[in-house]
Amino acid sequence: MTLKATLSEDMKEALRAKDSQRLSAIRMLRAAIQQREVDERRELSDGEVIGIVERLIRQRRESAAQYDAAGRPDLADKERFEIELLQQYLPQPLSEDQLQALIEEAVMASGAAGPQDMGRVMAALKPKIAGRADMGQVAARVKARLAGS
């Protein structure tokens, strides 16, 4: 079953359960997917849908931090709920060992010799870890690894 079909089923389930908070979050995700499909005039793949989910999670994290700083825990909690719900649609995250092994493999495959080759390593890694690890943290690890070589 595709990710979009899973979303539709989850939306129907939330409707039946009268879970308005969950329903609202799923509708927001479906609207973001549909908007991109309309803009690009084509059906999105699961990989592209995962990219949208990651972007929405990143936005929710930033919003929650801003709400906390502004003294609005009610709104921050809503954002955190949406983060938890959106994370259900991401693939299983990589363990530390798996991530380190993929970084080493990408460094060796790209023949990277130093920090100037970071772009090549990240380009090799991105398709393998999309949705399974925070790209910001991965970039920091790759940078540290290349600085040490």
Rank of each mutant, 00 (worst) to 15 (best):
E84M: 12
D77E: 15
V38R: 11
D68V: 01
E79S: 15
L86H: 06
V49C: 10
E82R: 13
E40G: 00
R80W: 05
L85Q: 14
G47F: 04
V53Y: 00
D46G: 05
R61P: 00
I50C: 02
L86P: 00
R60I: 01
D77N: 15
P93E: 07
Y89G: 04
F81D: 03
G71C: 13
I83G: 12
M28N: 11
G51R: 11
L90Y: 02
R42V: 08
R36L: 14
D77K: 15
K78H: 10
R80Y: 10
L56H: 08
A65G: 02
Q34G: 04
E79I: 03
Q92H: 11
E54T: 06
S45L: 14
L44G: 01
R72I: 06
L75M: 09
Y89T: 09
S45V: 12
I52M: 08
S45I: 10
M28K: 15
K78C: 03
A64C: 08
E40R: 13
E82S: 13
Q35T: 15
F81M: 09
M28G: 01
V53C: 05
L90R: 09
A31R: 15
E43W: 06
L86D: 00
S45W: 09
I83T: 10
Q92E: 15
A32D: 03
L44R: 01
Q66N: 08
E79W: 02
